[in-house]
Every structure is written in C-alpha cells, then in structure tokens.
Amino acid sequence: MTEVLPEFRVVRPATAQEAAAAHRDNEGARYLAGGTDLIPNVRRGIGDPDLLIDLGGIADLKKIEVGANGARIGAGVTLAHLAKNAQIAAAYPAVITAAKSIAGPGHRAAGTVGGNVCLDTRCVFYNQSQWWRESNNFCLKYKGDTCHVAPKSTYCHAAYSGDLAPVLLVMGAQVEVTGPEGSRTIALPDLYGEDGQNYLALKRGEFVTAVLLPKDVLPTVYEKMRVRGAIDFPLAGVAVALRRDGDKIGDLKVAVTGTNSRPFIVEGIEELVGGPLSDEVLDKIGDLVQKQVSPMRTTLVAPFGRRRIAAALARRQASALFAG
C-alpha cells in the first residue's frame, strides 16, 4: 500500500458538541478516533473525506466512571487504557479479556472503545487497494453495484468484527450518542443492522460518546479464533454469560461477532434457562449458534469453518462457566 493520502483538513474540537457542529457544517466530514482502521482505508481510496474531525482532543470522552449504578466508559478511552483499568477488571473482567485481545499493542494504544464498537465491516473485496477494487468493478459496499460475496444479493455482506460488542451485548450495555440534534441513549442491539454497508443505526453526524454498563452483570467470558495470535481480526468471536443456580442454568446469553454484518445476541437461548447443562443442551446451544451465524466468503477462511468455530466456542465457554 503506497498510495498517498488524499487532501483533507483536520480539526480538533474540544467538546462533543463542537465536533457535531463541525460535522453538520461540512458535507464531506468524517469523525476520526484512533484511526487504526480509518487511516488505512482512506489511504486505499475508501472514504475520501474533505475534513477529519479528530475526537482525540475531547477530554470528556476519555473518562471511565464506575459507580453505584454501573459504569460509563468514554468512547475516547483507548483499548490499552481500558485493558489496564482496575475497576473495570473487578466488575467486568470479560471486557478486559476482549480489549486485550484486539489487534496488536500499537493498535490498542491508539484504537478507542468507540472506534471498536463502531468498527467498519470488513471483506476481502473491500479492504483492498484502489486499483484492486477498481479492477474488480468495485463492490456494493463502496462505489460498486455488485456484492462479490453474494452476487444476487441486494445488500452488502461484509462482516462486523469488533471484539468488545459481543461482551457488551450479553452484559446489556447501552450507548450514548451525540449528534447535531443533541444526545440520546440507545440499547446496544439497536445500534447495529444486518447490512454491511449501513451497519450502524446512527443518524447523519451522530457518533458514540460513551458505553454504559449496568451494575450487575452475569459471569461472562469471551473467546475468539483468528489466523494468528495477534493483529488479525476474529474469524468468529463468542461471548457467553451464564449464572448457575444449583444444578440448573439460572440465566444464559450468547453473542457472536465476526460472522455477520452485525454482532448479535443468539435467539432461542433463553428457552434453555431453568434446565440442566447436559450434553444435549450444549448441542442445542451449538445448533442455535450454527443456524444464526451467516459467515460468507468475506475472509480467506472458508465460511463453514467459521460457522463451526462459533458453535464450538459457545459450547466450550458455556461448559466452562457452568463448571465454575
């Protein structure tokens, strides 16, 4: 990748409101957080912004507050700082597991919570250089009219692969967003949509300013599979939250990343609550995951492998959590 960056201006607002106003006033504006995904993409001719609004100067976005009602993690907190936070480690250890597992140290030092939650969807036909994509007539996600992964599809199949989202989903997180029209809070599942091109349900100019976690969360674990032990995005990542009541499952939630255009909570799992965690139930968990994940040819690893990986991760973690 040797492309030079296109021409753009950079502004560094001091508040979220100023950032939103700068976005409102500039048609070609984009928000810039850690830049670990955005800058390589812009270098590859994806996006072509006129203005980058650097969110790194907004002090309010860099705070982590843990109190009686739960936690508020500012969207500008870097993944490296999140991974070192003792209060989060005590109350929400799976958040730390996920944060530490993202990319490599250099990415975690720059990458932010907000950036990871809103991570652009990825595909072998999208994350390529300008000439590569151009010689392939581009793709549905950007500048083209065909999804090369599913040519008859009317929407983009690029995969979402943020690591924090599945953990935050099973914990029942909300996100606070700010835009030109003010701030609002939305449940995390409502932030995402099953379309790789329009995967975030944000209005124009809105950006995530904080992640809110409830006070009490279930014991949670997160595990992912990737080609190498660092840098790579997950082929599949699974968060499982489980509370054991005696010999029964007291509560259970499973969420998956890396396989679909959005991270999602696996449906139907709630029917297993109240029963034992037998081999049959583990099979049922695996089946539910396999049926709901829809990995496509967005990575170099075959989709059927990623489907089975997701199911195996869910089974293994549910089993480990139940054993305690």
Binding site: G35, T36, I39, G104, G106, H107, A109, A110
Partner: peptide, 23 residues
Amino acid sequence: DGGECGACTVLIDGEPHLSCITL
C-alpha cells in the same frame, strides 16, 4: 504502510504507536 507489521513503531507519551497510520 498499513498498520500490519510494526516496523514504524515509535513511542507517543511512552506507549508504542504505529506511525504509518497516525496523522
């Protein structure tokens, strides 16, 4: 040149950062 190899690592406020994907 895309944040994948670490050759451009420098320290910013003591933390390792990738200078090829930092403006």
